[in-house]
Design a protein around this nucleic acid. Structure first.
Lengths: 391, 391
DNA sequence: CGATTAACTCAACTTACTTGAGCTTTAATG
DNA sequence: CATTAAAGCTCAAGTAAGTTGAGTTAATCG
């Protein structure tokens, strides 16, 4: 969710510098290791300008020298790489019954993870739990606090009063206050707030299978089903931050139309198994049931294929992504099974020769995807230039 | 369609100025008339910087003084407005059998429109027709050529070799060459290329019902059905410029799944009427048939409601737009009928209290929507700051 | 009518990028 | 092996375009 009053800001020397820093950082990140001259060529800046920025970044210990690379004639460039300990990002995920937190370093490696039960869902309790957990994860991971760039906070959508309220997926509304400002004041760091699917999508870009991709979609299994869509490196948010509510679109299932997430979601698996007298509480239970070939689970899988295939077809045709990623709160075995069963229609803009990526991929971030994604939002922001200020 | 190698460029003084010019122009455009101090407050620039830019824009005759506005105490600000004749945009639409061209002034008013039959669809013929038509429309409308900012070219998508090739909707592929560069060289102006639905969406933003909107979706009736989606003022293009192929998604129709555009499109109306022995060639025929209550047309309308409702539900939940606009090559009477019949589900992120815009709106640009949109792309670019260069 | 407020201009100042000269390091060439 | 070319890089001067602060003009308020 973002302020709906974003404005495009004018540029001055200072903002240009900040923009250029992000351009340079972003290039170092995406290249892994890169020399100054190459950054200059790629960004349209002069070598001197890049040199100055590199000097700044080195002084701040955000980057390190990383050898030279002989490349034909001429003096081999000094290469630079991100210094992992140069910056850290907090990621917080708020679920109805628990709070999770992680710390990532600048390269996206996980430095620590903590969780806490949420005794109540009033705002004060949530805020206290979040603040305490952030403190704990930073302490336990021995993260230097002055190097924490910011925090991402993930809450299940949708945000604000919509027709989906009461669906059981939303946690609570924060109508009277901007959650980002609220948490920013509480944690004492810059905060970005997003829904789980969007954060999960960003997690894959920072440390998962979407590295190097600019336009892709992530089908996120939470309690429901969400879609995080990245276009040109930016999340598609919608007018109120509620884009991607794919779980609520009507899809065909055995001849009638049902909401997608009634057939394809964590909750729907649990219900299907419950109806067969089997109670599952975590992913391991489901994995075991799958390994055992439990009929109720197999039936659920069979029933999920048609609506999921329809959803993939819709996503492909509406967003023209480089790939569609499946991930979230579902065991890999189930995701793999679904990926193998989904019928990819040939009548799609995604059916094209010379694809660099498969049409379907499995997310790499596992169960903590959304929490990692929360932190990834912060890192992505650090690497994405944006001359845009909020009023 | 856009280059897939966009890079984020570094900022220098010159690029900052160009960015700031666009910020200022954009604010003048969206406000209609506005004073310098207000622009400064809204953009984060100093009054002096805005003053300098305003002086430049006045010298170039892109804007004019537009009176003073007494606003409480203090010296009333001198207001500025766009000077319509300060700049012009060419819009070209290439259809399988014809080429259309329009000229818009800086405020989006139509200065002239021309059309020509397309004798063949090879590249040379198309190029010649486009160049000739551009020349003609500029001559007839007496547009000063040195004030033409650029040209938008609209071609039916999808672009490149996709699984939708052969659907009859694509005109021809330009695999070996970037169409924008090609036409730019031929016309001698900067050129943007887009598909019809995206251009139509932009037309509504420049001169239609989407003025002032940042995030909305446009369901475009071409020969098929397309979706143009604008998010934060930018078109959602997809990895290969083929986002929005909504006509090809499977939707329910009378118990089975069919491609949306087989029930909701210009072609599908014509087929439905043809099957009843009625041949329609233009919108007027359809309007008359509607006025006469022609049973085949009424049956088509009835059959279109369910799939169209599903499509709207999908668009609302995936994009969370401020509104969904219906328009394109379909008479207003039909669009109005459809808008009245569509069932808007309450289980949608778009079902929210205090909406500023209705969930469905009819496009204002009429049959020339896509051609106007082609020109609107150019104007939008003139008003949208973007420190992004193409390699 | 004076005080206050706001818009605006002028001139000095500052930031950060660019440019050009020159140095260093490597590979290719004769 | 010496020479030349090519590429990376630094230093210092130059420049574009923004900001700042003082001062002017033109309204409203009391």
């Amino acid at each position: 969710m973002r302020s709906r009053t974003d404005i495009v800001a004018g540029a001055n020397a200072e903002r240009a510098r900040s923009h250029n820093r992000q351009v340079v950082l972003g290039r170092i990140r995406s290249a892994g290791r890169i020399g100054r001259a190459e950054i200059a060529r790629g960004s349209g800046l002069s070598i001197q300008a890049v040199s100055n920025i590199i000097a700044d970044l080195r002084a701040e210990e955000l980057i390190v020298e990383s050898g030279r690379r002989a490349a034909g004639r001429g003096q081999p460039p000094v290469q630079y790489a991100l210094r992992p300990a140069g910056g850290f990002a907090l990621g917080v995920e708020i679920r109805p019954d628990a709070v999770f937190a992680v710390v990532l370093d600048l390269c996206g490696a996980t430095m620590g993870a903590e969780r806490a039960r949420l005794p109540a869902t009033d705002r004060a309790t949530i805020t206290r739990s979040v603040v305490d957990l952030c403190d704990r994860v930073l302490t336990v991971s021995e993260t230097p606090r002055d190097r924490v760039l910011g925090a991402g906070v993930v809450m299940p959508g949708p945000f604000g009063p919509t027709g989906l309220a009461g669906s059981g997926s939303e946690l609570l509304t924060w109508d009277d206050i901007a959650p980002a400002d609220w948490f920013s004041a509480a944690i004492g760091l810059p905060v970005v707030v997003e829904n789980d699917a969007n954060a999960a999508a960003m997690a894959e870009r920072i440390a998962g299978v979407a590295q190097g991709l600019d336009s892709y979609a992530f089908l996120y299994f939470g309690s429901g089903l969400g879609l995080g869509s990245v276009q040109e490196g930016r999340l598609v948010a919608g007018a109120h931050g509620n884009a991607g509510e794919i779980g609520h679109i009507p899809v065909p299932a055995g001849g009638k139309m049902v909401p997608l997430e009634s057939r394809v979601s964590r909750l729907s698996v649990q219900r299907a198994l419950q109806a067969a007298g089997i109670t599952v509480t975590d992913g391991e239970d489901i994995t075991r049931a799958y390994a055992a070939g439990t009929p109720a689970l197999m039936a659920w899988l069979d029933a999920a294929v048609e609506p999921l295939s329809a959803a993939v077809a819709i996503v492909e045709n509406l967003f023209d992504p480089q790939t569609v990623i499946l991930g979230g709160a579902m065991p890999n075995a189930i995701l793999d099974h679904l990926m193998g069963s989904v019928r990819l229609t040939t009548r799609s803009v995604s059916e094209r020769a010379g694809r660099a990526h498969p049409r379907l991929m499995r997310g790499a971030s596992g169960r903590m995807t959304a929490t990692l994604g929360a932190a990834a939002l912060v890192l992505n922001q650090a690497f994405t230039p944006q001359i845009v200020v909020q009023t």
